[in-house]
Design a protein around this nucleic acid. Structure first.
Lengths: 201, 201
DNA sequence: TTGTAATTTAATAAC
DNA sequence: GTTATTAAATTACT
């Protein structure tokens, strides 16, 4: 039941992400993203005294590649014991705006989807090697098994027919993906071949 | 229109599955499916020397649940240096002990690159502190950035959009992990409190 | 050694 | 049905 599900482990994680209203979250994000570009006209000579203040982030326009790319992040080498990255709230500056209408997608959808990702999700099924082996064998012969075959497999493998169907869907997607990948590599090879043959001239 | 659709990217992938005629496919499938049941009368004492041979599949009658359900599938745990996962060739043993230890700088890189290519794993991306800082800021506002925001971030931070997405996935996993941990600690405290209060009586 | 980037895949939602 | 994306589990690198 529903209240049961809300008690779950991940409830806190959800709430911490949903404390701001969708409006506010989207608005704040817009502001942040915008701040990464709008300040092109600002002077770049502002003193950069304290790294990693809010200002240093929000004041950042198209970041200097040398700044962005340098100094790999090594948090565990820091002397700092203070782990501030924990159950973060970010509750401040909710007063940015009340009813901004500039967000593109439907925020309610995003909200509901976020919630649904956590609650009422089927636990991940772990297929055994034998099950996989048989499923793969069947897949090689027929990647679109009908309901009868799926039911048969389900009975044989002690799985729900639903799991079988999902497995075949994901398997087809995987095959398609790999095909796309190899085609991409082939095209890349063709390009490099073209280039090398041109260099030979 | 229809012929248009057939020209698409995935055409090859589909065709590779349709190389057998429908008759043949259905026939082979029938044989396979039947093989999962008909051999009830066969002796079960046949030597099961090599797991996952064709025989071990086809010889499987109503599979022993303990066999079918055990041993979760972990393909990448296998002998592994054989990088069969990617589109890579895995041409031969790289002979790890060739110059195994004490490669300090540039040979190490070459070796690692070879190995990476060989295993088919993307070289680990090292984010800069500034990149991390910005990613964290965005994460606090929205831990599920859509494609538009990811692309925007990618452009700003000079990263691939893919890296951004992976970063957010791992970041969410981290948050969840930390929540689980703290909840575990809380429960432990409750238990010890219970115990101490009982001892007081 | 730890933290985390990368990978794989079952589950889900949108279309 | 496909597609994109997620969580989960795990590997491997720094």
């Amino acid at each position: 039941n529903e209240s049961q599900a809300l008690i779950g482990d991940e409830c806190g994680a959800i709430k911490s992400n949903l404390q701001l209203s969708v409006h506010t979250r989207r608005r704040g994000l817009d502001l942040l993203m915008a701040s990464l570009t709008v300040s092109v006209h600002q002077s770049c000579s502002m003193s950069r005294r304290s790294a990693f203040t809010i200002e240093s982030i929000l004041g950042l326009d198209r970041p200097d590649p040398r700044t962005v790319l340098s100094a790999p992040h090594r948090p565990w080498t820091d002397v700092k014991p203070a782990g501030q990255s924990r159950g973060v709230v970010a509750d401040s500056d909710v007063s940015v705006d009340e009813d901004s209408k500039s967000y593109s997608k439907s925020p309610a959808d995003a909200y509901r989807r976020t919630l649904n990702w956590y609650i009422g999700r089927r636990p991940r099924t772990a297929f055994s090697s034998v099950q996989i082996k048989i499923l793969e064998s069947v897949f090689q012969l027929n990647s679109y098994p009908g309901i009868d075959i799926r039911e048969e497999l389900a009975k044989k493998l002690h799985l729900d027919e639903d799991r079988i169907q999902i497995w075949f869907q994901n398997r087809r997607a995987k095959l398609k993906r790999s095909h796309r990948e190899s085609q991409f590599l082939m095209e890349k090879n063709v390009l490099s071949d073209l280039q090398s043959s041109r260099e030979e001239r």
